[in-house]
Amino acid sequence: MLKDITLGQYFPGNSVIHRLDPRTKLIMVVVYIVALFMAQSWVGYGLMFLFLAWVVCISTIPPKAILRGLKPLVMILIFTAVLNLFFTREGTVLVDVWIITITTGGINRALMMMARILMLICGTFLLTYTTSPIALTDGLESLLGPLKALKVPVHELTMMMCIALRFIPTLIEETDKIMSAQKARGADFENGSLIQRAKALIPILVPLFISAFRRADELATAMECRCYQGGEGRTKMKLLRYRRPDFAAFGCGAALVCAVAVLRCFGL
């Protein structure tokens, strides 16, 4: 069913990773991505993998959940791997038929790209799995704070993001309900040609859009009733503060980047 979608779903827990300041986690993801792109050898990738595995381990997120989240990305992975396989001309030529040339360099490159994308996605999944959407937008707002000086409406943007995230489960539930109601009137979503199936979506999309607009309108009214007026002079119930584990995390991140940089200097 639709409810089984787990893209970027929060897994409540109480591990060190869960308790980190959301800003720390956001910064660490950026650091991790930088380190990942600096690594250029299997040794470097091995180091990155060990780091990732260690963090997954202490986050108490079941590895199965992360692997399940990767499923929708299989096509992209295969596509990237195939492109790299055919268009890299390095090393010994293994196959050379018609326009297809496969080289050892190509195989190496394809595998590396796959490893890089996999680790990239797993790392970012870890962020959304261990951080509630509210904490995430809070952290983002705080990190983007300096942009307010440039008249960027940071608070409004993060508020929009927060509301969007909040309404995903609601809209999924709504879709389920409307689908059942139209099925009860004999709508058929599974059979027929591609065009027929696209047309069959109209009875779902129209009510869904109407209900989304209605909800947005009601929410806006409710917010105004409570005198919401944006970020100006607004205080927070949960103040963000860096604590000891956060500094430890920054230390680990710095160590990781240094290690990868050193490996790079040695050509590894």
Binding site: K177, S180, A181, Q182, A184, R185
Partner: peptide
């Protein structure tokens, strides 16, 4: 078709 089902708040299914 033989067993017709009217859901709660069925007006939200009009399109």
């Amino acid at each position: 078709f033989r067993v017709g089902l009217v859901f709660q708040y069925p007006e939200y299914q009009l399109f």
